[in-house]
Design a protein around this nucleic acid. Sequence first.
DNA 1: TATCCTTACGGAATTCGTAAGCATG
DNA 2: CATGCTTACGAATTCCGTAAGGATA
Lengths: 318, 318
Amino acid sequence: MNFQQLRSVREAVRQGYNLTVVAEVLHTSQPGVSRQIRELEDELGITLFERAGKRLTGLTAPGALVLPIVERLLLDAENLRRAAADFAGQDHGTLTIAATHSQARYALPPAVRDFSASHPGVELRLKQGTPQQVAELLLAGEADIGVATEALAGYPGLVALPCYQWTHSVIVPPTHPLADDARRQLTLTLARLAQFPVITYEPGYTGRSHIDEAFQRQGLAFKLVLSAMDADVIKTYVELGMGVGIIAAIAHDDQRDANLTAIDARHLFASNMTRLAVRRGSFLRGYVYDFISAFASPLTREVVDTARSEVSGSVFDI
Amino acid sequence: MNFQQLRSVREAVRQGYNLTVVAEVLHTSQPGVSRQIRELEDELGITLFERAGKRLTGLTAPGALVLPIVERLLLDAENLRRAAADFAGQDHGTLTIAATHSQARYALPPAVRDFSASHPGVELRLKQGTPQQVAELLLAGEADIGVATEALAGYPGLVALPCYQWTHSVIVPPTHPLADDARRQLTLTLARLAQFPVITYEPGYTGRSHIDEAFQRQGLAFKLVLSAMDADVIKTYVELGMGVGIIAAIAHDDQRDANLTAIDARHLFASNMTRLAVRRGSFLRGYVYDFISAFASPLTREVVDTARSEVSGSVFDI
DNA sequence: TATCCTTACGGAATTCGTAAGCATG
DNA sequence: CATGCTTACGAATTCCGTAAGGATA
């Protein structure tokens, strides 16, 4: 039994049982992967993969049973390397942050700037994706930290920590009727808002669910002319006069967005909690804690470790 | 990084940092072990062992930090093999039970006999030792199941399950004054018992602590003429008239021990709980559950797994 | 001086990639 | 017939044990 065999098995599952792809991912030859898997099967004395003729089609029952153990072995191998690297080159390494556009664009910059200044030896990588993709990157070990408002709390393999709460704003061109309302100190209502075409986030993104819920609760329907994955795109189309935008308040900057009027909408939509997540069971290098604290100061190393040790248990079950 | 390197590191710690011994245990050459360790240190980029000149003297701080990860890796490798073997040859394998003499001699036989009959393909191994040794065998992965009355519940790395409660008996030759008392229906008291020299278990064994506590609580001192690790030895010296024996009630059989009179002493000493333990995080083959149920019928597979998953968390912390 | 670790070296075993073969959709 | 896994084979590498060297208690 060796780690290359285990990697081959894990990757075969991840890559949909296509050993040719596995070979590419692992930078080796396809017959090599085939051999690794068969040798492991021989040593263990069980067939891990269902085969239709020659091609692999899925896991056998024994395969499905041992896969979690294989994953844990590879996770711990990675943990070992990280723990060692943390001692070896204390302040050299890589920090990969997976985040949604909104977080990467509006929430992370101060922390990234400060971290980068205080940890010049750490290479920072920022990966963007949907909240689901953020979670998957974490689970696959391809990101150290994930930041998103949605989804993260729903994965048992992740530890999600609340970072900050935020609310929505409505943005309109200065000439828009709603901008007039605001100047006259009129309180914005959902009914009033529903009179205009709306531009906001796609479902599954950045508090979109709370927007839908608010309208539904009042039995109102809003006309969605455009949905986008990030506030910058939304702002662009609001400027073009296509509709009123509903975005995260943090995504509006009075100075930079002088050509748009922002109207506070915290009374209309439920507030949102942005969470930071790490993979349960992953060793975190010292500077990972540093970044987390820089991003959300209440999340000290101690707080993070406490949350990490509050195990649901299921992850380590066999 | 490979498993042989990890094994060398683990064994180096276990064998007191003597690589010559490690080589013997791992059935390899001493320079080989030396190389494995250095190669791992090189790959990880950290020094794992303190060295005084050429010899190893202990773990460095980084070494102590990564050792738990190394142990977990090797444990999971073992788990993987066991899980596979459980599918491969469903009813072939080895079951190693570590127990104290009392358990091996008086409590285990029925379960061992039944199990052996129902699982002819499983080789049974019985290891004896002190309760501490039983715990250490489990923690070192050299036994699957441990049975003892003392100590087992105190190890965070073990899951201890209560099996049965038992009480003490006093044994004397039929001609002994206490035997007369019993025939006259006189209730035995500690004060009366303390009038005679006592033969019982060694400290740390089979409920000895409850015996000491009972006398102490009443401010009585008893004269211990002999202490032994098992009831058979105690019985032998009681037969010789050296004193009265205090042994586990289960260790006396009216027919086999016809030359000794047993007097119930459950009112004198606190009752004892015999526990069965398994290593936390170890994969248990199907027949291990079978044996546990055979030994203590309330301990079904479900009960055992529930106890196993109630993790203190500390074991898997990094 | 005995114990214990490291270095050096050579043979053996393993490993891996290329090329060819074969089954499946 | 294109895709995808297996088999075959040879070269390169790695691995490991023996023997010698050096440091420490």
